[in-house]
Design a protein around this nucleic acid. Sequence first.
DNA 1: TAAGCAAACGGAACCAGGCTCCGGTAAATG
DNA 2: CATTTACCGGAGCCTGGTTCCGTTTGCTTA
Lengths: 196, 196
Amino acid sequence: MNDGDMGAGPSARSKRADARRNQETLLDAAASVFVTSGVEAPVRDIAARAGVGVGTIYRHFPTRADLIIAVYRHQVEACAEAGPALLASSATPHAALSQWINLFVDFLVTKHGLAGVLRSDNTSFDTLHSYFIDRLLPVCAQLLDAAADAGEIRSGPKAYELMRGVGNLCIGAEHDPGYDARRLVELLIAGLRQPH
Amino acid sequence: MNDGDMGAGPSARSKRADARRNQETLLDAAASVFVTSGVEAPVRDIAARAGVGVGTIYRHFPTRADLIIAVYRHQVEACAEAGPALLASSATPHAALSQWINLFVDFLVTKHGLAGVLRSDNTSFDTLHSYFIDRLLPVCAQLLDAAADAGEIRSGPKAYELMRGVGNLCIGAEHDPGYDARRLVELLIAGLRQPH
DNA sequence: TAAGCAAACGGAACCAGGCTCCGGTAAATG
DNA sequence: CATTTACCGGAGCCTGGTTCCGTTTGCTTA
């Protein structure tokens, strides 16, 4: 993918040491700033926290979306991999779907502002949106199809629509004690059930 | 409420003619810019469209929220008044609730970006949020209570949570052909039904 | 070890958009 | 017509994103 390591043999040239170090530092700084100030924290704040100039951020992460993706990649991967596992271990496909959606919701609501930025109409977040869709939509579709095949759900929204709906319900869920995204998502999933 | 008299008796002085004219012009300009560029259009654009300076906007509408409220006030009022009417004319309270929610959704999705701005964490939109809540929440609560009394719905979210959820589902619904907010809202309302 | 070079760095500078402030304009009034 | 003052316009400030380029620094090679 890049010319760096990627196991292309022992002779592969590395990036300069300071570059790699900075990339690491930036990821840590961004993660910690995201926790305290949300994913929409000013770029300058992240640069300051990392002790680098803003130019360095843009060199490593051309758009803010790239930075966010890099910070959360592990967790998105984990969520994606949990899908098939849940399907294998759950009593019914609908139960698996429900549990998986819970994982997804937990991820979104604990990342201050992430759900909101996912739905921003700012075009610079398109790649973030695409990343989530590319990685998670197939998983969701698999669970949904399994539940449909089992006759547990009515013909309703396709996976894309469901995921967007769930994502939307998570927006602004962090700091409003009167709003519980999980409860509403449960309601939505309940509405999906076949009225036996 | 309309011409700035503050109800201090019939002798109350009117505003200057140019001020009243500008206020009217601004409302028209804002409405038309909102249609084409969304409710988050730059203030300067609205000023230009109205042929006034930005100072004039801020004098008449101290925050953008005030402007948005003024532009949509009639429609919000109509929506609020439709609640009791629907309750009186519908077969069941749940049907009335469902229809009323549909009105609300129609309103939100046809106002480019309005749902998104309702959920913005930008504090300057708090008054917009408050306005919607103050005006519409009691209506929603009345419908919800009626449906609960009739035993049609399970004990679920309170009116506030329901309205926020519905509002969230409407975010970004305008320009995504693969996403139909109405369908998801219907699912949500269906999930509210008492099982069997 | 030192020289040469490209990679990488930092932050000044530029742009966009929100909001304020104040000198100027003109509506109301006598 | 003169006076008052509400009201107007837009220059200008602020915040935050993004770019650009002179400087620094790690790596390579002699």
